[in-house]
């Protein structure tokens, strides 16, 4: 099963990826860097802390992981064969 997103053409998201990106609340300072670098709009700040809003537009670039100076974002790959796929890279 895969999904498309009208705003991001040419990319499919294959279901079953799991929660491969997450924020450790105890480490997060709520600075919003992850929100700023994520082109997929996957993060939001709630009650002064970042949280993953959706992974359905995640292109697995890991910018959130690089940008977080507190190491609060944990990032691993989605389950094999899942997550984004494209023919046009």
């Amino acid at each position: 099963m895969s999904r498309k997103n009208e705003a991001i053409p040419g990319v499919d998201w294959v279901a079953g990826a799991g929660r491969f990106v997450s924020v450790k609340k105890s480490l997060c300072t709520g600075c919003g860097d992850c929100v700023k670098v994520c082109l997929g709009g996957c993060f939001e700040i709630r009650d002064g802390k970042a949280r993953v809003k959706t992974l359905s537009t995640c292109m697995e670039c890991a910018s959130c992981w690089y940008a977080c100076s507190q190491d609060a974002v944990s990032f691993r790959w989605p389950k094999g064969g899942c997550g984004f796929r494209t023919n046009w890279g």
Binding site: I8, P9, G10, T86
Partner: peptide
């Protein structure tokens, strides 16, 4: 005509 949009680091 736009066919795809992608990003990567």
């Amino acid at each position: 005509k736009l066919r795809a949009r992608m990003w990567d680091g």
